[in-house]
Structures are given as C-alpha cells and as structure tokens.
Design a protein around this nucleic acid. Structure first.
Lengths: 207, 207
DNA sequence: GTCTATAACTCGATAGAC
DNA sequence: GTCTATCGAGTTATAGAC
C-alpha cells in the first residue's frame, strides 16, 4: 500500500548518499539512521556491521550500473563512439547538478577503502570492470573505424581512467573545466585514432 | 646533536604516512601520536586541531613537489616529452614498491576531503596546479614538435587526469596493469600529436 | 522486524604541573 | 615544549522487551 521503500532499502539508500557526500569513515551510523528514519535495532537486524552495509551499497551500485547508467544512454544514442561520450556526459551532469561536489560514487570510495577494506575493494573492482565492459562493447562495435592495433579493452580502461581522473580534478577545483578539458582531449585522441584507422588502414583491405 | 627531527616535523611525517595509508577520517590522533613518538600535549601545542595538522601536511607536499618529485626527473632526463613520462614513472615506482596499495598522496585526500574541508581543498588544488605547471613547462619546451592547435595547459592537465585515474584503478585492482595501460595510451596520444605536428604543420613554416 | 536503553570504547581536545 | 590525566561527546554494536 505505502510507496515508502522497506527499511533495508532505505538504509542502503541513506548510506549511499552519505558515503558519497562524506566518505565511509566520516559517516556515522547515527547519521545513517537519522536519514533513513530507522533505529539501530533495524540496521543491525539487516547488517551485522557497518562494513556489511557498505558492501550492500557497493553491490547495489554494481547491479544498477546497466539499468541506470549505461542503458539510458544506449537507448538514446546509436553511434558506438558517441555512446562513450554520452556516458561521460552523465557524469558531467552529476558534477554540474552538485556544483562539482559530487562525481563518481565508486571512485570516491575506491581511494578511501582499497587499502584497508579488502571485500569493498573487490566490489569496487567489479564495478570498474562492469563499467569498462560497457565501454569496451562500444569500441568493439566501432572497430571498423579504428586502427587494427587499437586494443578495445585497453582503450575502454583508458576511458575509465580519464573519467575518474577528470572527476577528481573537477571536484578539487570546484570547476567543470578540468572535466571538460579531459573529455575534449579524449575526443581528440579518438579522432586521431579514427583518422589513422581510415586513412591507410582501411584503403588497403581490397588489395 | 641528535639527527632526530624535531617534534613538529615528526608529527607531520607521521600524519602524512597515516593519511596516505588510511585516509584522514580513519586516522586517529592517538595513532599519529604513537607513530611520531609524541604526546597529545605536543601535538596541540603546535596545531590547534587535527585539521590544522592536515593543512600542514598538504603545505608540506606543496613545498616538496619540485625538490622531491620534479627536479630529480628533470636532472636525469633532458628531452621535454620524456620528462613527462619520467615523472609518471615515479608514481609507477611508488605503486610497485607498495604492491599497488599506495599511489598519489594528493589524489587520495582530494576525493575524501574536497566536499567537506574547504581549506584542505584549496591546498589540494594548489598541489595539482604546481604539478600541472611542471608538466606544462615540458609541453611548452616541446611545442615545436606538437601541432599549433595543441594547448599546453590543457594537455598538462590531461596528463594529471590520466595519472590520477591510473593510480586509482591500479589501487582498486591491486595490479600495475591499469597504470601501464593508461601511460601507454597517453604515449600513443602524444605520438599521434607529434606525428600530426611534424607531417604537415612544420613543413609549411618556410612558405 | 522494530523499539529503547545502554554497554564498551575511541574520538578530538583540554587543563595544569613541570 | 612536553608531560599526565582526563573531559565530554561520539562511535559501533548489543540486550531484551514488544
């Protein structure tokens, strides 16, 4: 009857937002409970520890990557290379909407936790791999425009590298400029690869 | 007589290492005191708050950037473009020495603190700007090999973007591969720019 | 599944002697 | 400048009623 999500989901949602804004260590359980409108008894009924709640948040991100981040862009854009920049534009919108205070939720937690929380680190790597796989698909779909020497996986990982670095700089400077600069450079790189792929790689196929 | 650094410097050094390994929020004052071999009375004599100690650490990084990170590479390498990859190799060495648990100290703190600690955020941006300026100098020194359309500042910022993103992925995967992949892609980009800069931009200068 | 109350501990920071 | 002792608040997590 009620549209309110169940307690477990509210806890995950509240934790997600707070971890995103403040980080994991800086977010107290009490704060999560307040935001979720729940009591500690409920939280510890669902999650044995605060870290288990963190893992649930990361699993949530992993499961929502395709339906929320990738699929909407793929539905809107057909060209495989433009799909890549469409995904990147999604992060640009998040930065803009939050005045460059919030970027990629995974990257955020990656640097804070990868040294001290092994299970979280693995889930973060899984998130990265899922993201990379989507971009890799785009590159494979555009393989006929790129040089044969270009490796789809390496290129996809480089796109993720660029996105994460770009989000970091835009947050540090509180300006969208570093993000836009990075995306423009990445596009220039792709343009050069495409030029290289058409100018003397394609023409010689008939011979 | 004693070679032991004074207490203030020991506190900054201990805090630097712990912030680097664990992050700011996850590091307790007691832990810093233990590592530095000091008591809380000393810490709060030098620094009014824990955050002031953080700011001192960030100022330290800023002041040590040239003598520790940039100058040794510039002394060893003359070619301006190779200097860029020499600096990047310094971060590779740090990743390798720590089995990919520790990368760039600034990037680490950037994502954790830029949303909640304004003064730290500004010092982090200063660190980024100093780093970018060094790389920009390299690009300006190699301007005759690059296309005229290439902007030195934008390219330098893209190098930083790549480095920070690459360190993040290598830490998350606990493998050096993503870092190497990113550097290889960046080199390919520079190679393409150089090819573009020589093939039809230079020849027309005499005309 | 959710509530209240609280245990057990750590946090950042302070007071005052020396 | 450095020491010991400690404050008060906040932390994660638990116990037991409902």
């Amino acid at each position: 009857m009620s549209n309110r999500p169940d307690t477990r989901k509210r806890l995950i949602g509240a934790a997600r937002e707070l971890f995103l804004e403040q980080g994991y260590a800086a977010t107290g359980v009490a704060q999560i409970l307040k935001k979720a409108g729940a009591r500690s008894g409920s939280l510890y009924y669902f999650f044995p520890t605060k870290e288990d709640l963190l893992l649930a948040v990361l699993e949530d991100y992993r499961d929502l990557l395709w339906p929320l981040v990738i699929q909407p862009v793929f539905d809107r854009i057909d060209d495989p290379l433009e799909r890549i920049f469409g995904v990147l534009d999604g992060y640009r919108q998040m930065l803009r909407m939050t005045k460059c205070t919030i970027g990629c939720p995974i990257g955020n937690l990656a640097l804070e936790l990868s040294g001290s929380h092994p299970q979280a680190r693995k889930l973060i790597a899984q998130n990265f791999s899922g993201w990379t796989a989507a971009i890799e698909q785009c590159i494979v779909d555009a393989a006929d425009r790129l040089p044969e020497s270009a490796d789809a996986y390496d290129l996809a990982q480089f796109v993720l590298t660029t996105m994460e670095g770009a989000v970091m700089l835009s947050r540090a400077y509180r300006k969208i400029d570093p993000f836009d600069t990075a995306v423009a450079q990445l596009r220039e790189y792709f343009d050069l690869l495409v030029a290289q792929g058409t100018e003397w790689s394609r023409p010689r196929t008939p011979e």
